[in-house]
Design a binder for these strands. Structure first.
Lengths: 186, 186
DNA sequence: TATCGTCATGTCAGTTTCTGACATCAGATC
DNA sequence: GATCTGATGTCAGAAACTGACATGACGATA
């Protein structure tokens, strides 16, 4: 690779969450993070587009967990059934990551700029799911709303999951919440 | 009030949208905006928390248009009916503002940072509507999803409304879109 | 009329985020 | 061993944003 320690990106992510926990997001400069990770500030901005991104990283794999499951659902499955499959699959994405998810959630909820970024991530996920549904032949309005239904359910489930002291089955929880929502608006 | 021309905030907003149209958002500095408005850069940041805010301003009145309508709906109205009332009321908020809305939309859609801020505005509106529904006695999950349904409908309607060359009845259009969405997921 | 307090704005210095341009050098390739 | 590649370092700088203090028109009060 180069003449340096590999994994600069990961070291930056670790250093960042540590410092955010210790001093808070605003009180931590990118220079601080770079020093702890053993690189320069410039390297930080080559790895992450901006300071917030270090907590979010590349959403491709995350979003793909949902969209791949939607695409893989049987052709005869309804949009809602495809979304249910996506929720189950997404639960697996967080398997074993409960401790980290708790730390990350605590940091994010403590800062408006990070909460904002988190919302955007959710919007993009919703858009991605809607597109996957359209590719299955769902009409655009149905795709948009079913995708919303799925992300609302997932995020309400995630909130419950992350608040619990021990890790439970996130996928199953999300499917359950989705059922509650459907019953509520029926 | 002071020794200066009143209305600095409005002059800044006008100068900003003009410059964004002329040069683009990124190519316009806050200093540029301040000069055109006849104030200093420091005054800009006293009026608006950050550069993006000049296009968004205080959302209080906007959100209140929705939430007040929800609160004012008859006690026996369902959450969905309360949201329908909110959509009609919100249509009135934009009455006569079609030309400005088109300019503003054009600027916002040309820049990722502005689109992001617009999404956040939508999320906050959804939260506000959900809260208003909860205050009417709706269970939290019902409130959350009904609010989502309302904002999805409103924003799809707004997109159609702003794309049209002549101003139509936005409230009626939003109610119509909501009906389409309901039929789609029934 | 004179004085005083208010407060939006100006002035200025400084920090932090973020970017462009160019240099460096370990390891892969030939 | 020469060359290429690519991640990183170095450096200068633009632009966003903040804190501290000064200014001066206006309104209130004596």
């Amino acid at each position: 690779m180069g003449r340096w320690q590999p994994g600069a990106r990961e070291r930056l992510a670790v250093a960042a969450i540590e410092l955010f926990e210790e001093r808070g997001y605003d009180a931590t400069t990118v220079a601080d993070i770079a020093v702890r990770a053993g690189v320069t500030e410039r390297t930080f901005f080559r790895q992450y587009a901006d300071k917030r991104e270090v907590l979010f990283g590349d959403p491709t794999a995350y979003n793909a967990t949902f969209t791949d499951a939607v695409a893989a659902a049987p052709a005869e499955a309804t949009p809602l059934e495809a979304v249910v499959a996506a929720l189950r699959a997404a639960g697996g994405f967080f398997e074993g990551r409960h401790p980290y998810a708790r730390r990350r959630t605590a940091v994010i909820t403590s800062n408006a700029a990070l909460l904002e970024r988190e919302q955007i991530k959710r919007v993009h996920l919703t858009d991605a799911i809607a597109e996957a549904l359209r590719e299955r032949g769902a009409p655009a309005p149905v795709a948009a709303l079913t995708a919303e239904l799925g992300t609302v359910a997932f995020h309400q489930a995630f909130a419950r999951w992350v608040a619990a002291d021990v890790e439970t089955d996130l996928g199953a929880l999300a499917v359950q919440v989705l059922g509650e929502l459907r019953a509520a608006i029926a």
